[in-house]
Simulated assay, not measured.
Amino acid sequence: MATATPNDVSSLSYEQARDELVRVVNELEQGSSTLEESLALWERGESLARRCEEWLLGAKARLDAARAAAVE
């Protein structure tokens, strides 16, 4: 089973969070986990998805800033 601690994703890179999220989704799709394990996986997946979104929003902000600077 994947690590079930949803609070320790802040140090993950985008790629690490994305790859682990893929593993979590695959494990959930298999349907072989207990209810408790599935809930822990779901929580981990939500945390990983938020981490990926943080990275993507940060990247978008940097691109927007670079574009704005290029226009000036």
Score class of each variant (00 low, 15 high):
Glu43Ala: 07
Arg44Gly: 06
Gly58Thr: 12
Thr34Trp: 01
Leu57Arg: 15
Leu56Trp: 07
Arg51Met: 06
Asn26Tyr: 01
Thr34Tyr: 00
Cys52Ile: 08
Leu28His: 07
Ala59Pro: 12
Gln30Asn: 11
Leu56His: 06
Glu54Lys: 12
Ser32Pro: 00
Leu57His: 10
Arg51Tyr: 03
Ser32Ile: 08
Glu54Gln: 14
Leu35His: 08
Trp42Arg: 05
Gly31Asn: 01
Lys60Gly: 04
Ser47Ile: 08
Arg50Tyr: 06
Thr34Gly: 03
Gly58Ile: 05
Ser32Glu: 10
Val24Phe: 02
Val25Phe: 00
Glu29Thr: 09
Glu27Trp: 02
Glu43Gly: 01
Ala49Thr: 15
Glu54Phe: 13
Gly58Leu: 05
Trp55Leu: 10
Val24Cys: 10
Asn26Ile: 07
Trp55Glu: 09
Leu57Lys: 14
Gly31His: 01
Val24Asp: 02
Ser32Leu: 11
Glu53Arg: 00
Gly31Glu: 01
Leu39Thr: 06
Arg44Met: 14
Glu37Thr: 10
Glu53Phe: 03
Gln30His: 14
Ala59Met: 14
Leu41Trp: 02
Glu54His: 14
Glu53His: 02
Leu39Lys: 06
Arg50Met: 13
Ala59Ile: 14
Arg44Asn: 07
Ser32Phe: 04
Ser32Met: 09
Trp55Phe: 07
Glu37Gln: 15
Leu39Ser: 05
Ser47Cys: 12
Gln30Met: 12
Trp55Gly: 15
Arg23Thr: 14
Leu56Tyr: 08
Trp55Pro: 11
Leu28Ser: 05
Cys52Glu: 05
Lys60Trp: 13
Gly45Gln: 03
Asn26His: 13
Gly45Lys: 01
Leu39Pro: 01
Gly31Gln: 01
Glu36Gly: 02
Glu37Cys: 04
